[in-house]
């Protein structure tokens, strides 16, 4: 029983991380059909922002306040990644609309440069971020079953992000414009929505969420310049499986992949588990080629 519970929790924890990484991706891909391979590097930027915040607190703030650096690190990571995303969109991405495969290659090049930049600034070895003491330990639900606070915190963070995104997309004016552009770009433009601004804003928000994901990842281990590359392909699989255009698809996709990954890895081993998950995804796409939740549309392409 407790093994089952633990696996369930592990699965949930992996799903939450995947979801956080894939959330920004799903938005940019769903809206602009731009494949942002630099998303992993934006995660890395978020992680290093947290590292910098920690160092600043270490140097400037009194000892007693150190534990609260993480509270500040989340908005800081979001902000820095947001700005970089905005710059990226204005300078490069907007020339690539309508050419998804080219956007993939160009952003991969950007990712390469950013990675190398991080390596030049922070050095190639991984750096450790000391997580605040109030996240040490865990919640004991029964003998031998401990749920670490860090993982619980990440799950809570993901839920908070989801709720915020939900309100932004479905309950705000900007969100309404965003959905309009997503559903029918030309029509939205005719009705006076500035698609350029919506695109830039959306891309920046997607990047900002990547920054938060990076911030969360610092809780799980040391960070390095190639941090993002471990997650990026899995995150794309979430988007492919979940379908684009709806938040719920991404949530289901991430939960599905996270849970099955844990399950298969428990049954077999780490490498075979990944193969099985991939086979399942391809098999699933036979049944629903557009993913779990697809937007209905009459357009052909």
């Amino acid at each position: 029983m407790d093994v089952f519970l633990l696996q369930l929790f592990n699965g949930l924890s992996i799903s939450s991380i995947l979801l956080l990484v894939a959330l920004g991706l799903a938005i940019t891909f769903g809206l602009m059909k731009v494949i942002n391979m630099a998303h992993g590097e934006l995660i890395m930027i978020g992680a290093y922002s947290t590292y910098l915040t920690q160092n600043l607190f270490n140097d400037l703030m009194p000892e007693s306040l150190f534990n609260w650096y993480f509270v500040l690190a989340i908005p800081v990571s979001f902000g820095i990644a947001f700005v970089i995303g905005l710059i990226l969109e204005m300078s490069l991405i907007r020339f690539l609309y309508g050419r998804p495969l080219d956007s993939l290659l160009a952003t991969w090049g950007v990712g390469l440069v950013l990675q190398q930049l991080a390596r030049s600034i922070f050095g190639a070895p991984n750096v450790a971020v000391k997580s605040p003491t109030w996240l040490d330990g865990g919640l004991k639900i029964m003998d031998g079953t401990l749920l670490p606070y860090k993982r619980l915190f990440i799950i809570a963070l993901v839920i908070a992000c989801l709720v915020a995104m939900y309100f932004y997309i479905y309950r705000s004016h900007e969100g309404r414009r965003m959905r309009a552009v997503m559903q029918n770009r030309d029509m939205a433009a005719c009705l006076g929505v500035s698609t350029r601004r919506v695109d830039a804003m959306t891309f920046a928000i997607g990047s900002g969420i990547a920054g938060i994901a990076g911030c969360a990842l610092t809780l799980l281990g040391p960070i390095g310049p190639s941090l993002g590359t471990y997650y990026i392909v899995d995150a794309f699989m979430v988007v492919v499986l979940g379908g684009v255009g709806k938040l719920v698809g991404t949530v289901l996709g991430a939960t599905g992949i996270g849970m099955f990954n844990t399950l298969f890895e428990y049954w077999t081993n780490a490498s075979l588990g990944k193969v099985l998950v991939f086979v399942c995804i391809v098999a699933f796409l036979q049944w629903r080629p557009m993913g779990l939740v697809a937007m209905r549309s009459r357009s052909l392409d």
């Binding site: 490069l92 080219d102 160009a106 090049g109 950007v110 990712g111 390469l112 440069v113």
Partner: peptide, 11 residues
């Protein structure tokens, strides 16, 4: 160089 090349060639 390689990263920049990617961007330049594609764009």
């Amino acid at each position: 160089f390689m990263g920049a090349l990617f961007v330049v060639v594609v764009v």
